[in-house]
Amino acid sequence: MTGPCMLYCGRAAVPLQWVGSVKAPTRTGAILTGDLYACADCLPHLGVMVERHVQERDLKALTAR
């Protein structure tokens, strides 16, 4: 699939990979559900952010015991 990257770069007409389903609030307060697509250049950045989040979450779970 080709289209605009929905993550960081916002480039148009690039090859995309499906990341997953997302829920996002609108300016009116409604919640929209849709699919998120990203280009190959942005996916590694997303991976780093997810990895950091998981590490912090797991560390909090260990120290809460």
Rank of each mutant, 00 (worst) to 15 (best):
V50E: 06
G10Q: 04
T63N: 10
D41F: 00
L62I: 08
A12F: 05
T26E: 13
I31W: 12
A24H: 07
K60V: 05
T33L: 10
R11C: 09
K23W: 12
C5H: 04
G34F: 13
D35V: 03
C42D: 15
A61P: 02
G20C: 00
A13H: 14
T63D: 11
R57D: 00
T2E: 14
P25S: 12
L36K: 11
L16E: 10
V22T: 09
D41C: 02
V54N: 02
R57P: 03
D58Q: 07
G29D: 01
V19D: 00
Q17T: 14
P25T: 12
Q17L: 10
T63W: 06
L62C: 06
G3Q: 07
V14A: 01
T2W: 03
C9A: 08
E56T: 10
C5Q: 03
T26S: 15
C5V: 06
Y8S: 04
K60Y: 11
L43Y: 09
T26H: 09
G10N: 07
M49D: 11
D35C: 00
V54S: 07
G34C: 06
A13G: 11
A30G: 00
T33K: 14
L32M: 13
Y37L: 01
R27A: 14
L62R: 15
G29W: 07
A13M: 11
D41A: 13
Q55C: 01
L16W: 04
L46W: 12
R65E: 10
A30F: 00
A40P: 02
M6G: 15
L36N: 03
G29H: 06
Q55T: 11
Q17C: 02
R27G: 15
L59Y: 03
G47H: 07
H53R: 12
G47T: 03
Q55R: 14
V50R: 10
C42A: 12
H45D: 04
M49I: 03
A24D: 03
P15R: 02
T26Y: 07
R27V: 12
P15H: 04
M6H: 12
L59E: 10
C42I: 10
R52N: 12
A12V: 11
V50C: 04
T28E: 13
G34I: 01
A64F: 10
T33D: 11
T2K: 14
G34W: 08
P25N: 10
L7Y: 04
T2F: 09
L32V: 15
A13D: 15
A64E: 08
T63S: 13
D58C: 04
V22I: 15
C42Y: 08
C5N: 07
G20I: 01
V54E: 06
V50M: 10
L7S: 04
K23T: 14
R65A: 11
G47R: 11
V48I: 14
W18C: 10
L59H: 02
A40D: 11
T63E: 14
C9G: 00
G47W: 05
G20S: 04
T28A: 12
